[in-house]
Design a protein around this nucleic acid. Structure first.
Lengths: 322, 322
DNA sequence: TTGGGAAAATGCACATTTTTCATGATAACA
DNA sequence: TGTTATCATGAAAAATGTGCATTTTCCCAA
């Protein structure tokens, strides 16, 4: 019994062991397990060899366990139970759970969505923890490694192993400070083209490189995937560069717009959120801008997990109210 | 993953699971386990089916565990470790152990042996418990069921499944009170035959029925197995009954001898122990009395158990000093 | 001591499961 | 778009578990 690295040790063998301890009879243990006396005897023999102990000896009344077996019995039962529980279907009760949930969101989304979300979350799952993460270098990796459970944003196509659902639609609007020359009139494409533009981009590049969008954070995609409307409009007017500066996030963009005559392109809910604080004017885009679709994204294989499913549903519910 | 009553769930499968969690690679897990990549893949597949979860998905860097797998991982490891420990070779440290040891002894032996034994026991194993039991209806059953770990006494032949060792030799002597007519002279067979005798017998019967001696306690055997010397001596003088009364244990016998002119047959160490207290005189038997052999008896299959072995060795050591 | 009976062990054939080998599929990356 | 590394898959082979029939063992009673 020196180094039982229990190779070849079947769980079934241990169940036989358990049954034997309780029944004190090879035959009855067999009946209980739905096996032949022979099968149990063979099994017992295998146990004896691997554990290097007689385990049970024949006596007047039944197979009496060895001291070793008697001592190991309860321990084995306990370990088996623990294993059972470890492998049991995960049940999830938000009210009880102390799980840590991690959500990947852009600063824009944490501003727009987080307040409502956090309130519900804390009410429904008071002992659980909600972590919001920005700026993951790679969303897919963050999801893969479990650093985040769900990513929220406007994603391009993601790998096959991800699943998604739509949370809400988001319109891109132009924002100017209230003293801005264009603040009063409604916006025309020409007027827009004549002004300096501020675009939000995490990387600083304005080139949307398809296929790796997912890797580069959420902001960028948000800005650019208005169906190409902005770019098309600018192209048509012969504007060489489509923007004059970039900001790393929408909040910064709004703050800059508040202090300069630069126009910022920004999700409408974000603009509304800070309109008052920054004294901003919201201008509808003078071109056909397709609304952005904000998605929740998660690993397909985790979708069935009750905790993840719950969080996803919470996201959907809260997004509906935004 | 509804009702994983884990049938057909091999421990090896769980080891594969563990390895996968740590290696995040089917190939490397295989190497670690000494299996083919293919074997591990098949195993993983089996796991997936039985646990009804993807468990691991291919990603850029390795097989990333599912949330479920990630949560189950540590639990499974812990349970596996517990199992490992439950099945690990029993190590026994008397200084640490809080085990309960049970010894089957006769009243005589507990008077003679227990004092020394208990002292050593408490010194060496201060947290362990020593239980001394008398009067087991069946020694073999007590050993079989683990009610006692070791029986001490003078046993006839015991079942094949028992092992034994000699602890010490014991002479039977006659005891009389100091006012007794025979107190001063040395004993002759004739003088002995003329006096009333007191014999110790648990059952009250003086017939030693071979083969079931073990079942009937220890005292009886102690008395009668002086090689038949007493009986032979009496027979030779034509004494019809070999004794005039019986007592259930040696201590009672000595107490009676102290108050009457009845002579008691008793192990010499017992006699010495109470000689002073009861004002007794010890008389050597006037016939060739073979010394009784006091044995320790235990279940053969428990002999290897370190705790039992320790207790046995302790018994031997203490007996040597008696 | 002997024999009867109950229960466990054993040998062997068969069924099932696991592993391997060879190959096919897939995803990441240049 | 091919290349590479890695995982999945299918079929055959190896190992392992099970059941049947039989033997052995042990208890118990005469």
């Amino acid at each position: 019994m020196k180094n039982v690295h229990f190779p070849n040790l079947d769980l079934n063998l241990l169940k036989v062991f358990e049954a034997l301890i309780e029944e004190k009879s090879v035959t009855r243990a067999g009946e209980r397990l739905g096996l032949t006396q022979s099968a149990v005897s063979h099994a017992l023999n295998r146990l004896r060899v691997t554990l290097d102990d007689e385990l049970f000896v024949r006596t007047a009344d039944g197979m009496q366990p060895t001291v070793w077996a008697m001592e190991a019995g309860p321990k084995v039962s306990r370990a088996l139970g623990q294993l059972q529980r470890a492998l049991a279907p995960t049940s999830f009760d938000p009210a009880q759970s102390d799980r840590r949930f991690a959500l990947g969101v852009s600063p824009y989304l944490s501003a727009v969505l987080a307040p409502r979300l956090v309130r519900s979350f804390r009410t429904l799952a008071p002992h659980a923890e909600l972590v919001l993460r920005h700026q993951e270098r790679s969303i897919s990796e963050a999801l893969d490694t479990g650093r985040i459970d769900i990513a929220v944003g406007a994603f391009g196509r993601a790998g096959e192993r991800f699943d998604r659902c739509t949370l809400f639609q988001e319109q891109l609007v132009w924002v100017v400070r209230d003293r801005h020359p264009l603040a009063c009139a409604s916006l025309t494409v020409e007027a827009l083209a004549a002004q300096p533009h501020l675009i939000v981009s995490v990387t600083g590049s304005a080139e949307p490189s398809e296929g790796t969008l997912l890797e580069q954070g959420l902001e960028r995609r948000l800005i650019w995937d208005d169906g190409g409307a902005y770019r098309t409009a600018m192209d048509r007017l012969g504007r060489t560069s489509s923007r004059d500066m970039t900001a790393p996030d929408s909040l910064t963009a709004l703050a800059i717009a508040a202090e300069t005559d630069i126009m910022a392109l920004c999700p409408i809910r974000m603009a509304r959120q800070f309109q008052q604080a920054f004294s901003l004017v919201i201008l509808k885009a003078p071109y056909e801008s397709r609304p952005i679709e904000v998605n929740a994204l998660w690993r397909k294989d985790n979708g069935a997990h009750p905790a993840i499913a719950w969080l996803k549903d919470l996201l959907i519910a809260e997004s509906a109210a935004i």
